[in-house]
Design a protein around this nucleic acid. Structure first.
Length: 192
DNA sequence: GTTCCGATGTACT
DNA sequence: GTACATCGGAACG
Protein backbone atom coordinates (compact mmCIF):
# COMPACT_ATOMS: atom_id res chain seq x y z
CA UNK A 1 0.00 0.00 0.00
CA UNK A 2 1.36 3.45 -0.73
CA UNK A 3 2.61 5.32 2.27
CA UNK A 4 0.17 8.24 2.31
CA UNK A 5 -2.85 5.94 2.09
CA UNK A 6 -1.46 3.55 4.71
CA UNK A 7 -0.91 6.41 7.13
CA UNK A 8 -4.30 7.95 6.47
CA UNK A 9 -6.11 4.70 7.24
CA UNK A 10 -4.58 4.54 10.73
CA UNK A 11 -6.61 7.63 11.70
CA UNK A 12 -10.11 7.72 13.24
CA UNK A 13 -13.03 7.27 10.86
CA UNK A 14 -14.19 10.91 10.65
CA UNK A 15 -10.74 12.07 9.58
CA UNK A 16 -10.46 9.30 7.01
CA UNK A 17 -13.96 10.01 5.71
CA UNK A 18 -13.08 13.67 5.20
CA UNK A 19 -9.76 12.92 3.49
CA UNK A 20 -11.28 10.40 1.08
CA UNK A 21 -13.33 13.11 -0.64
CA UNK A 22 -11.56 13.56 -3.99
CA UNK A 23 -9.88 10.14 -3.96
CA UNK A 24 -10.24 7.87 -6.98
CA UNK A 25 -11.86 4.48 -6.35
CA UNK A 26 -11.93 1.81 -9.05
CA UNK A 27 -13.08 -1.81 -9.16
CA UNK A 28 -11.63 -3.66 -12.15
CA UNK A 29 -10.89 -0.28 -13.69
CA UNK A 30 -14.46 0.98 -13.29
CA UNK A 31 -15.39 3.83 -10.95
CA UNK A 32 -14.58 7.47 -10.29
CA UNK A 33 -13.95 10.19 -7.73
CA UNK A 34 -15.37 9.81 -4.23
CA UNK A 35 -17.67 12.76 -3.48
CA UNK A 36 -19.57 11.51 -0.41
CA UNK A 37 -18.67 9.39 2.64
CA UNK A 38 -19.87 8.65 6.16
CA UNK A 39 -17.88 7.68 9.27
CA UNK A 40 -18.85 5.00 11.78
CA UNK A 41 -17.03 3.72 14.85
CA UNK A 42 -17.33 1.29 17.74
CA UNK A 43 -18.85 3.87 20.12
CA UNK A 44 -21.47 5.01 17.64
CA UNK A 45 -25.00 3.63 18.16
CA UNK A 46 -25.61 3.87 14.40
CA UNK A 47 -22.64 1.62 13.61
CA UNK A 48 -22.86 -2.08 12.86
CA UNK A 49 -19.85 -2.52 15.16
CA UNK A 50 -21.61 -0.89 18.15
CA UNK A 51 -22.82 -4.20 19.55
CA UNK A 52 -19.60 -6.10 18.87
CA UNK A 53 -18.50 -8.64 16.27
CA UNK A 54 -21.05 -10.79 14.43
CA UNK A 55 -20.64 -13.04 11.38
CA UNK A 56 -21.72 -10.15 9.16
CA UNK A 57 -19.48 -7.43 10.53
CA UNK A 58 -16.25 -9.30 11.40
CA UNK A 59 -14.38 -7.39 8.70
CA UNK A 60 -14.87 -4.21 10.75
CA UNK A 61 -12.82 -5.80 13.54
CA UNK A 62 -10.11 -7.11 11.23
CA UNK A 63 -7.08 -5.41 9.64
CA UNK A 64 -7.39 -1.80 8.50
CA UNK A 65 -7.35 -1.07 4.79
CA UNK A 66 -9.81 -3.85 3.99
CA UNK A 67 -13.27 -3.62 2.48
CA UNK A 68 -16.34 -4.25 4.62
CA UNK A 69 -19.14 -5.16 2.23
CA UNK A 70 -22.58 -6.00 3.58
CA UNK A 71 -26.09 -6.45 2.26
CA UNK A 72 -28.71 -4.01 3.41
CA UNK A 73 -32.45 -4.56 3.51
CA UNK A 74 -31.77 -7.97 2.01
CA UNK A 75 -31.27 -6.34 -1.34
CA UNK A 76 -28.47 -3.85 -1.89
CA UNK A 77 -24.73 -3.95 -1.18
CA UNK A 78 -22.81 -1.25 0.68
CA UNK A 79 -19.03 -0.70 0.62
CA UNK A 80 -16.95 0.49 3.58
CA UNK A 81 -13.22 0.88 4.17
CA UNK A 82 -11.97 -0.33 7.57
CA UNK A 83 -9.71 2.17 9.34
CA UNK A 84 -8.34 3.40 12.71
CA UNK A 85 -5.25 1.64 14.05
CA UNK A 86 -6.16 2.60 17.64
CA UNK A 87 -9.76 1.40 17.84
CA UNK A 88 -11.18 -1.58 15.97
CA UNK A 89 -14.73 -1.42 14.66
CA UNK A 90 -14.23 1.78 12.65
CA UNK A 91 -15.07 2.18 8.97
CA UNK A 92 -15.95 4.71 6.30
CA UNK A 93 -19.02 4.11 4.14
CA UNK A 94 -18.56 5.16 0.52
CA UNK A 95 -21.86 6.82 -0.42
CA UNK A 96 -21.33 8.44 -3.83
CA UNK A 97 -18.87 8.76 -6.70
CA UNK A 98 -18.49 11.08 -9.61
CA UNK A 99 -18.28 8.47 -12.39
CA UNK A 100 -15.20 8.89 -14.57
CA UNK A 101 -14.08 5.48 -15.83
CA UNK A 102 -16.05 2.60 -17.33
CA UNK A 103 -19.18 4.67 -17.88
CA UNK A 104 -20.59 2.18 -20.36
CA UNK A 105 -20.13 -0.78 -18.01
CA UNK A 106 -21.70 1.13 -15.13
CA UNK A 107 -24.64 2.22 -17.21
CA UNK A 108 -25.27 -1.36 -18.33
CA UNK A 109 -25.10 -2.68 -14.77
CA UNK A 110 -27.43 0.06 -13.55
CA UNK A 111 -29.99 -0.71 -16.21
CA UNK A 112 -30.25 2.75 -17.69
CA UNK A 113 -30.08 5.10 -14.72
CA UNK A 114 -29.69 8.77 -15.53
CA UNK A 115 -26.08 9.86 -15.55
CA UNK A 116 -25.98 11.90 -12.31
CA UNK A 117 -27.57 8.98 -10.44
CA UNK A 118 -25.17 6.28 -11.65
CA UNK A 119 -23.21 6.14 -8.39
CA UNK A 120 -25.31 8.43 -6.14
CA UNK A 121 -26.00 6.33 -3.05
CA UNK A 122 -24.25 3.33 -1.48
CA UNK A 123 -26.47 0.73 -3.14
CA UNK A 124 -26.31 2.32 -6.57
CA UNK A 125 -22.54 2.74 -6.31
CA UNK A 126 -22.01 -0.94 -5.53
CA UNK A 127 -24.30 -1.97 -8.37
CA UNK A 128 -22.42 0.23 -10.85
CA UNK A 129 -18.98 -0.96 -9.71
CA UNK A 130 -19.95 -4.61 -9.41
CA UNK A 131 -19.24 -4.72 -5.66
CA UNK A 132 -20.77 -7.69 -3.84
CA UNK A 133 -20.17 -9.92 -0.84
CA UNK A 134 -17.32 -11.74 -2.57
CA UNK A 135 -15.18 -8.62 -2.05
CA UNK A 136 -15.78 -8.48 1.72
CA UNK A 137 -12.44 -8.38 3.55
CA UNK A 138 -10.35 -7.71 0.43
CA UNK A 139 -7.57 -5.09 0.60
CA UNK A 140 -8.89 -1.80 -0.77
CA UNK A 141 -5.71 -1.02 -2.71
CA UNK A 142 -5.17 -4.39 -4.40
CA UNK A 143 -6.96 -5.84 -7.43
CA UNK A 144 -9.78 -5.74 -8.18
CA UNK A 145 -9.80 -2.57 -6.07
CA UNK A 146 -7.66 0.48 -6.52
CA UNK A 147 -7.73 3.58 -4.33
CA UNK A 148 -5.68 6.72 -5.02
CA UNK A 149 -5.78 9.79 -2.83
CA UNK A 150 -6.40 13.17 -4.43
CA UNK A 151 -5.19 16.62 -3.47
CA UNK A 152 -6.69 18.25 -0.40
CA UNK A 153 -9.94 20.05 -1.21
CA UNK A 154 -12.84 21.83 0.55
CA UNK A 155 -15.25 19.41 2.26
CA UNK A 156 -18.67 20.00 3.82
CA UNK A 157 -20.14 17.88 6.60
CA UNK A 158 -23.61 17.20 7.92
CA UNK A 159 -25.86 14.61 9.54
CA UNK A 160 -25.71 11.08 8.20
CA UNK A 161 -28.48 9.65 6.06
CA UNK A 162 -30.89 6.81 6.65
CA UNK A 163 -30.04 6.06 10.29
CA UNK A 164 -32.21 6.10 13.40
CA UNK A 165 -29.56 6.56 16.07
CA UNK A 166 -26.66 8.97 16.24
CA UNK A 167 -28.46 11.39 13.95
CA UNK A 168 -26.92 14.44 15.60
CA UNK A 169 -23.35 13.33 14.82
CA UNK A 170 -22.25 15.25 11.67
CA UNK A 171 -20.18 12.45 10.21
CA UNK A 172 -21.38 12.70 6.61
CA UNK A 173 -18.79 14.38 4.37
CA UNK A 174 -18.99 15.58 0.79
CA UNK A 175 -17.68 17.73 -1.99
CA UNK A 176 -19.60 21.04 -1.80
CA UNK A 177 -22.19 21.44 -4.54
CA UNK A 178 -21.31 18.24 -6.38
CA UNK A 179 -24.17 17.11 -8.67
CA UNK A 180 -23.17 13.51 -7.97
CA UNK A 181 -24.14 13.47 -4.26
CA UNK A 182 -26.89 11.12 -3.13
CA UNK A 183 -28.57 14.20 -1.61
CA UNK A 184 -27.55 17.83 -1.16
CA UNK A 185 -26.06 18.87 2.15
CA UNK A 186 -28.17 21.19 4.33
CA UNK A 187 -27.22 24.76 3.54
CA UNK A 188 -25.22 26.62 6.16
CA UNK A 189 -27.04 29.54 7.74
CA UNK A 190 -27.08 32.24 5.09
CA UNK A 191 -27.29 36.01 5.55
CA UNK A 192 -30.76 37.37 4.86
C1' DG B 1 -42.51 17.45 -7.50
C1' DT B 2 -44.35 14.13 -3.38
C1' DT B 3 -45.61 9.81 -0.73
C1' DC B 4 -46.17 4.91 -0.29
C1' DC B 5 -44.72 0.34 -0.86
C1' DG B 6 -42.27 -4.04 -1.80
C1' DA B 7 -37.97 -6.55 -2.17
C1' DT B 8 -35.77 -9.67 1.93
C1' DG B 9 -30.39 -10.67 4.83
C1' DT B 10 -28.94 -10.11 9.36
C1' DA B 11 -29.35 -8.90 14.09
C1' DC B 12 -31.97 -8.21 17.88
C1' DT B 13 -36.31 -8.12 21.48
C1' DG C 1 -41.95 -10.87 15.66
C1' DT C 2 -39.41 -5.88 14.42
C1' DA C 3 -35.82 -2.83 12.73
C1' DC C 4 -32.45 -1.50 9.48
C1' DA C 5 -26.10 2.81 7.07
C1' DT C 6 -31.61 1.39 0.40
C1' DC C 7 -33.56 1.63 -4.00
C1' DG C 8 -36.92 1.72 -7.81
C1' DG C 9 -41.37 1.99 -9.31
C1' DA C 10 -46.30 3.18 -8.81
C1' DA C 11 -49.53 6.42 -7.64
C1' DC C 12 -50.50 10.86 -6.80
C1' DG C 13 -50.65 16.35 -7.44
Amino acid sequence: MNRALAELLTLPAPEVARALIGARLLVDGVGGIIVETEAYDRLDPASHSFRGPTPRNVAMFGPIGRAYVYRIYGLHWCLNIVCDAEASGSAVLIRALEPTQGMEVMHDRRGGGRHPDLCAGPGRLCQALGVNGALNGRPIDEPPFSLTLGPSEPVVSGPRIGIRHGTSTPWRFGRPGSPFLSRPFPLAAAPS
